[in-house]
Simulated assay, not measured.
Amino acid sequence: MKALLIILFTAIFSPLAFAQAKVCGGTEIDIKKVGEWESTRFIVEAKNGADNTKLILKSVDYVSSYCEKSTTGVDKILILAICGGSGCSESTYTVIDARTLKVELVPFQGQGNLELVEKLLGREFKL
């Protein structure tokens, strides 16, 4: 239910619902939607100078990004991917270190991983 409210709110009030750009710890995060319906995918790109990391997320309906600082002072990019099916988790995150661009956590389809995100942050995380 929470995921549905996030999707509806963003779709109604945000002109960037399908294209997002943010900066986290000097790293630019760009999220673009490509395709339609069953072939929809999101391309997430993190760029810091000449370095970049690119991910393709499939089988999701909505993607959002967050910049969070860990208890050790490291900026982490959290990518939340939500799908609309009953077999989908509301807490499916990918985590990227904003400094090194290393992908530290990749979710498994349909399984939440909030506990692992909180271990990487060293603290509780809430939207």
Score class of each variant (00 low, 15 high):
A17Q: 06
T53E: 14
S65T: 15
S91F: 11
C67D: 04
S89Q: 00
D61S: 15
I56L: 10
R41H: 15
P107C: 06
Y66R: 05
F125Q: 04
L55E: 09
E115D: 15
I82Q: 08
L105W: 01
P107F: 08
L105P: 00
R99H: 06
N52W: 11
K47Q: 11
V74R: 11
K32M: 10
E124I: 11
E90P: 05
K47I: 14
L55Y: 03
V63E: 05
N52Q: 15
C88W: 02
R99A: 10
L78D: 00
L114T: 02
I82L: 15
S59M: 12
K102Q: 13
F108G: 10
G84V: 12
E115N: 14
T100A: 10
G85P: 00
Q111H: 11
T100R: 07
K119G: 03
Y93N: 02
I6C: 09
I43Y: 04
E90D: 14
Q111F: 12
L5Q: 13
T94S: 12
G84F: 09
Y66P: 01
V103F: 02
Q109H: 10
D30K: 10
V60Q: 06
L105C: 03
Q20K: 14
L57Q: 09
L120W: 02
K126S: 14
L101D: 01
V117F: 02
C83I: 07
F125N: 05
C88F: 03
Q109G: 08
D75Q: 09
A81I: 05
A98Q: 02
K119W: 02
K22E: 15
I77T: 04
Y62G: 04
G110M: 06
G26I: 02
Q111V: 11
G73W: 05
L16Y: 13
I96E: 04
A46C: 09
K47L: 13
E118W: 06
G35C: 07
T53A: 11
I79L: 13
V95A: 03
S89C: 04
L78H: 00
N48A: 13
K76A: 02
K22M: 14
E115T: 14
G26D: 04
N113P: 08
E68H: 08
E36D: 13
V74G: 04
